[in-house]
Design a protein around this nucleic acid. Structure first.
Lengths: 260, 260
DNA sequence: CTATTCATGTTATTAAAATAACATTTGCGT
DNA sequence: ACGCAAATGTTATTTTAATAACATGAATAG
């Protein structure tokens, strides 16, 4: 009798892989052992699964991640994103057809979509799709392809064609780096294709970013700053961007929205 | 002071829309009221949100649905699907490229995928994609398009072309109705296109179904029984299918796998 | 064959969440 | 202004989950 515990763990993991929860009592019955043994197994497994209110579930699932982790800096960052997206959402009109970029920055934007009668959302991000899929008032178009877990998004060379066929009203774009001269960049190269396609075909281009990205350069450039019609950011970043733009001709100036 | 409660509910719902959880304490702070008030709000909202272990979350999220609901018939059906998929998984080989159909029937199949080194999964179902996306050893290709919440799947006329380009080894197909003469059917018409494309291009076609579907006819037919190489079902259904086939010529006979 | 260890079960204890009961505030009509 | 009623806050109680402690039984080494 050696790896009994591991066998049980594997069985539970398999049961939970399709994404659900198991009551402790059921998990125990499934494995034919006592509840205490299941608890011990899970505790020894070191973080792959957790209990939450008497229910066993896969840990590390973003679904269960608290929105504001109190252990971090007191809600400053998540709240910042929420405020940012609240501001960004003010540019949405009834009946709009929106492109929503991948990443975590624009997730709170989805929450604001419930206030409209009818919208259409186009995205290539799985997390965005999941959130939007729950809204009855929003038509969702997901651009599929090969999945990249690192960005929770899909890659496909068919995306530009698909996007150009879709008629996107407003494109909400996120970024990992923003540089006044060098432009806007992100981490993953496969994001460049859909980002560029959305920027090219959208009626209005809205860049949403918090201050931590200013002056930062990431591996994959995908746009210049002046390709955006609106930039939604916080006060300090906005001020600096304004300064940088003042040196340009007045015609090129883009609208920068300050949040705080 | 009239709809204060509704306002708080809306705010919480918006915060949770992007998919996550809120500790009760955080929810209370977010709304500037006591925890008890939040509890009362949520209780009065009637099921849109629930508490689970001190954390607020959107109810009805499949992510939180118990795998076996004890209130139902004692695990008979969910366990049946699990056994069915365990049997179906025995046809998977290392390195395979699998098509996985939409619906709940094939969800447990995803749990069995963790035992392999390297697989590729092609699907047009959001629930399948979510489950597969967590597995590091599986490459996921999601066929996107317009989302249908009813079946948690996508519709696109580009799917046949995309599927034919993919080289699918084995196609696991689910159905809502199986009739010996009339063939295999499902509820939604948009599922027909990807199902047929997968059946057409796959090396091996595996139909997975429990006994409750036998003799049932649903709106959208998509295949005849003899288009499948393997049918994984339970004993009684298998027996009846065997009988029906005995009346046909021996050449047409397909392999029926009994489970119990 | 027996002592020891490990895995598990059982029971007791503690901590935490859900509920209930009661107190307080606030808004509003008379 | 007064009093009523709705809404919220506070405290107490019950229930439930999590932890700890102890007991049992099988497996193995000496």
């Amino acid at each position: 009798m050696k790896g009994q515990s591991a066998i049980r763990l594997a069985r539970l993991q398999q049961a939970l892989a399709s994404g659900g929860t198991l009551r402790l009592a059921d998990a125990a019955r499934l494995c034919g052992v006592s509840q205490m043994t299941i608890r011990r197994d899970v505790a020894a497994s070191g973080g792959t699964m957790t209990f939450l209110g008497g229910r066993l579930m896969m840990a590390g699932d973003p679904q269960f991640a608290p929105l504001y982790d109190l252990d971090e800096q007191k809600g400053s960052h998540p709240l910042a994103k929420q405020r940012l997206c609240q501001r960004a959402a003010s540019f949405i009109d009834e009946g709009d057809s929106l492109f929503i970029d991948c990443g975590t920055t624009l997730m709170p934007l989805v929450g604001a979509l419930g206030n409209f009668e009818q919208l259409t959302v186009v995205t290539y991000a799985l997390n965005v799709a999941n959130a939007v899929g729950h809204l009855a008032n929003v038509r969702l178009v997901l651009l599929g392809g090969l999945f990249h877990a690192s960005s929770s998004s899909f890659e496909s060379d068919a995306m530009p064609a698909a996007i150009s066929r879709l008629g996107i009203n407003k494109a909400f774009i996120s970024a990992a780096g923003i540089h006044p001269e060098k432009g806007v960049s992100c981490f993953h190269f496969h994001e460049v294709v859909p980002k560029r396609a959305a920027i090219a075909s959208a009626g209005q281009r809205i860049l949403v970013t918090d201050g931590s990205k200013l002056g930062v350069i990431r591996p994959a450039f995908f746009a210049d700053l002046d390709q955006f019609d609106i930039i939604v950011t916080d006060a300090e970043t906005g001020r600096q961007l304004d300064e940088a733009q003042s040196m340009q001709s007045h015609e090129d100036r883009i609208k920068v929205v300050l949040k705080y």
